[in-house]
Design a protein around this nucleic acid. Structure first.
Length: 465
RNA sequence: GUCCCCAUCGUCUAGUCCGGCCAAGGACACCGCCCUUUCACGGCGGCGACGGGGGUUCAAAUCCCCCUGGGGACGCCA
């Protein structure tokens, strides 16, 4: 049995979002770092909102990120028998009770409490109902929370957090349809799976004292708890779909590399001295809970972009070429990984931040695009047309289409025309349609002599007409 | 409203646990300069923070209290 067993327990109600991904990453890294085990468990007890598509999306995202679970995925819907048994035990021992309050009644009471300025909570009116009173009526099972005393959450990151039991609710353990609720199953599962470290988002800190009470009621021993600060959106507050891209897949589809994503996420809330770039192996070697910060961090796209640019530069161009194909396809360009594509990638690698940008910048390699009007107005002027024609002529006579040959050909034309003709930018615009591009001679080489001559002649013709 | 958490450059953070090495370091972004056929890459430099107030101490970014600010939770969601 390993000393450390962590888990990631998402609910399959949507895509894996950034915050969840980081929680998974931290749990995984902590397990790896300590030689422990990392379990994936799908919390699908909300039958209404859970979907198989969401399960698949979560699995895909984790796999894409390279976060590999050692066990699972377990599904809570496969374990209902266990929860039922534990609920019955609590009932039999008097540690839980049946409550026949209806949802409507509860809502009304909650509203009244809020209006009175109290913390809305269950008032406990079914606590001492004789069991027969629930006969024939729909009921939920609630835990009997102590009215007095305190519950202390020993948090790995924050130290002891003290809660007054009087402020805690009699949580619903089993719904009226017989299905168990989150706070109940999470305890039963974490205990039965032998989870040693429950590491999760800060939003669960308030649940933890209630869960501790449940651990005690069930006679389980406590795991260690640690709560990570949340990731905020770019405008502050929770990540919102409106302002931020929240799903991992959204970033994959925009052309971010998984290693950029994990590197970005691991540095959100965690640091190792001044180091910014982490390979997975380095993360696994250095990750520790002591260096996880306590304050929330804001999601910052520019940083992610910078890291992605870094990893694109560092990546094998063969791999990038393969990844680029679908991004080209999105622009209607049918390309296949080829030595030529790899060369194209090489010219673009240090100029882009995402694969999407790379595809956009690569477009001119595949088809002639009309020059940007401003660029044309500045560089494709009537005065330059004769020089362009002359250059096209010179280039078309070349046998070897190499950088040095092209450069000499251009030089000959420039000298013939008095030595001070600025020719590079006009050619660039003629070939790529833009004023910014990879090196001119690299572009010419990849385009090939005939295409280069054709585009330069076409540009000259457009000027004259 | 009640409860809980948090607080170093615009942002991510190092430093905080074990006060002095911090006239606060790195990175992103931004601004200059250099390199250069353009753009980028790269190099060099600049801008820029301990939220406020009280303590404790010879000494506080570091410890304590209050305030302020930010966030989270209050479901038959997870």
């Amino acid at each position: 049995m390993p000393d450390v067993i962590t888990r990631f327990a998402p609910s399959p109600t949507g895509y894996l979002h950034i915050g969840g991904a980081r929680t998974a990453l931290f749990n995984w890294l902590y397990a790896r770092r300590t030689g422990g085990k990392f379990i994936l468990r799908i919390e699908d007890t909300d039958l209404v909102r859970s979907t198989p598509e969401a399960v698949q999306a979560i699995l895909d995202s984790l796999t894409w990120l390279g976060i590999a679970w050692d066990e699972g995925p377990y599904f809570q819907t496969d374990r209902l028998e266990l929860y039922r048994k534990e609920a019955d035990r609590l009932l039999a021992e008097g540690k839980a009770y049946r409550c026949v309050c209806t949802k409507e009644e509860l809502d009304a009471r909650r509203e009244a409490m809020t209006a009175r300025g109290e913390k809305p909570r269950y008032d406990g009116r079914c606590r001492d109902l004789p069991p027969e009173a629930a006969e024939g009526k729909p009921f939920v099972v609630r835990i009997r929370t102590p009215l007095q005393g305190q519950t202390i959450v020993p948090d790995l990151l924050r130290g002891d957090v003290v809660f007054e039991n009087s402020g805690l609710d009699d949580l619903v353990l089993v719904r009226s349809d017989g299905t168990p609720t989150y706070n109940f199953v999470v305890v039963v599962d974490d205990a039965s799976m032998g989870i040693t470290h429950v590491l999760r988002g800060d939003d669960h800190l308030n649940n933890t004292p209630k869960q501790i009470l449940l651990y005690e009621a069930l006679g389980y021993s406590l795991p260690r708890f640690g709560h990570f600060p949340l990731i905020h959106g770019m405008e502050g507050g929770k990540l919102s779909k409106r302002q931020d891209d929240v799903s991992v897949t959204a970033y994959r589809d925009k052309g971010y590399l998984p290693e950029a994503m994990t590197n970005y996420l691991v540095r959100l809330g965690w640091g190792h001295g001044d180091q910014e770039i982490f390979s997975v192996a380095e993360m696994q070697a250095h990750f520790s809970l002591e260096h996880v910060g306590k304050s929330p961090s804001k999601f910052n796209l520019e940083r992610l972009q910078h890291l992605n640019a870094h990893y694109i530069k560092a990546a094998d161009p063969f791999r990038i070429a393969g990844l680029l194909v679908p991004f080209l396809a999105k622009r209607g360009i049918a390309a296949e990984p080829s030595p030529w594509l790899v060369s194209v990638v090489r010219t673009l690698q240090e100029r882009v931040r995402t694969l999407e940008e790379m595809a956009g910048m690569a477009e001119f390699y595949f088809r002639e695009t009309l020059p940007d009007p401003k660029a044309a107005a500045k560089f494709l002027t009537p005065e330059i047309a004769p020089a362009l024609e002359e250059i096209a002529g010179e280039l078309s006579t070349l046998d070897l289409f190499s950088s040095s040959e092209m450069e000499e050909a251009l030089q000959r034309v420039v000298e013939r025309r008095g030595g001070n003709v600025r020719i590079h930018q006009p050619i660039r615009v003629a070939l790529t349609g833009r004023t910014a591009s990879p090196g001119l001679f690299e572009v010419m080489e990849l385009l090939g002599r005939d295409e280069v001559v054709r585009r330069i002649e076409a540009a000259a013709r457009r000027i004259r007409s």
